[in-house]
Design a protein around this nucleic acid. Sequence first.
DNA 1: GATGAATGAGAGTTCATTCAT
DNA 2: GATGAATGAACTCTCATTCAT
Lengths: 182, 182, 182, 182
Amino acid sequence: MAQLRADARRNRERILAAAEEVFAERGASASTEEVAARAGVAIGTVFRHFPAKDDLIAAILKALLARLVSEAGELAASGDPETALFAFFTRVVEAAAARRTVAELLTGGGADLRLGGALRALDEPLGTLLRRAQEAGAVREDVRLEEVTALLAAASQAALLAGWTPELQDRTLEIIFRGCRP
Amino acid sequence: MAQLRADARRNRERILAAAEEVFAERGASASTEEVAARAGVAIGTVFRHFPAKDDLIAAILKALLARLVSEAGELAASGDPETALFAFFTRVVEAAAARRTVAELLTGGGADLRLGGALRALDEPLGTLLRRAQEAGAVREDVRLEEVTALLAAASQAALLAGWTPELQDRTLEIIFRGCRP
Amino acid sequence: MAQLRADARRNRERILAAAEEVFAERGASASTEEVAARAGVAIGTVFRHFPAKDDLIAAILKALLARLVSEAGELAASGDPETALFAFFTRVVEAAAARRTVAELLTGGGADLRLGGALRALDEPLGTLLRRAQEAGAVREDVRLEEVTALLAAASQAALLAGWTPELQDRTLEIIFRGCRP
Amino acid sequence: MAQLRADARRNRERILAAAEEVFAERGASASTEEVAARAGVAIGTVFRHFPAKDDLIAAILKALLARLVSEAGELAASGDPETALFAFFTRVVEAAAARRTVAELLTGGGADLRLGGALRALDEPLGTLLRRAQEAGAVREDVRLEEVTALLAAASQAALLAGWTPELQDRTLEIIFRGCRP
DNA sequence: GATGAATGAGAGTTCATTCAT
DNA sequence: GATGAATGAACTCTCATTCAT
């Protein structure tokens, strides 16, 4: 991947971008052909870069998770422990709100993309943020990572609901956060 | 629907039951043919009763919602106002946990099956339960129906997660409920 | 298969006939779509009757082998032991000459259609004919079933050669037969 | 071909060698890309040397035939006329046994690779060997080149059968040879 | 009304071949 | 000349839907 020709790298990125758009709009059942069209390449090019549709979806998800993990890392390093967890939580939900695929894949996707495979990548940074928040007294001691993750997945799904607005998001997350506080 | 021949009515119900099973197990992408097989009828019979696959799915959802609405009514009539809302909330999540389709359809399915079309049916009974709970002082005054519905949808989705167990459900819902209490 | 509707049975047979033709002409790599076209049905109909291309090919081969086995049985029952083996041998080669698929499949086809799977069906009747011929003194004692089968496959393949004519067939098989005689 | 740059000539030969291996293992349906990979060149290089896949296959076959023709020449020049024909026959069958492509192409491949195009190259040396053998009294007078070629093709195909072993080869060819002797 | 065979658009995937780098 | 990314037609197979029986 590091040694791709310039044009290949360009196409790879256009395909990823197109796929993110298409899957965000239509969900993971959108056709690979549409991704190709949106990226302005032939269908074969998509399959050259991602041998199977699942590989393409996995690549998108992986990229997104990597971004989130890195954001979590930054928050853990420099943020206020009392608010970092909730800030991150909000951030993830916002990302999901913009992408049907994300939430879909958290539960539905290919076998190995389920919670065990995908959300698990967030376990470590999320765990750190949770521990810090508890040490800072911002979250009850009896709240465990497991339910935080579940709530995160839940809220990410909810973010796709028809009437979802920033204001509703605030009010909804506030209930969850309040439930976590001592 | 009122004037169906006896055998037709019987078939209709067997198809609905089969569809609920099949879609619960395999999700909404299960094939209509499998529904027919499970119901013990021919594929043509399914399409005679439900002109399109979406109609069948909508019918299942409608039936489920009707059941839930009636349960909500009973709780509102006879239950303890302080706990009825949360009891109902738990009940819905449990129903979702047993059915892939439900949660899937809340966000995914055909356009008109989204929150606006489906969950809206719960608005009235849910609103009643909420109002009663608030009057009884069991729920904060500033919690609105909208976010309760969103949380309900969210938790219903989460119920499909790989690691979901009754215990995790308790812990997760408890956070949400705590966030609702004064 | 016995309870197929009349139209289904008709189509099944038209598909088999078309497939035999098409594969005979173009080899097993001919497209299923061409078979469908030749049979005058839509592609889906072919796949309804034969869930995968291999099933279609296997069905053709099975039918042909069944015919040959039954011919062998008749020859064993009523034919002159001294000539029955060679008559059957000739018969098989003639059948192969008319069908690319046959010879192809004897060596090439799907994994389970190779010699072990396909020609093996001829083992029993061929063995009987061979034993009778040896008892009648028409074939050397040291000729075994294995090499007869090999020669049969060989000659069947050769029957597809460009210059193959009835006359060449006679002269070629005569050499083989002479080699088998005491 | 005479004026190729040294590296081009080297590539050409590596491609031929790789192709012989790949097609021998996987048959003519193996992908050109695999040939390129095995040869350690890019796919474009293969197509520069052989404008179409068939050209590559034809080149392999031609090379093999050339080798066989030269072996036949040597046998004709220096071998015992009584056994040279059968020795050559055996040699060809052994070559075929090691290469799926050979036998496949004798009947299957592109139209112009059939008997008329390929085996014809063996006509002359084979004719010479046959004539010598007949003059030496080792082969019946009424055996003609045509059927020898047919038997050769036949045995070459048979060499690909699943159960083919050196011992089976001996027994099978012995029958053919016996049929040729006076 | 019920049956279930037929339909055919569409999906994912492969691969010979072309052509910009 | 070599490279290898891009192309796109072709192929197998699926499934919602229609319609003759």
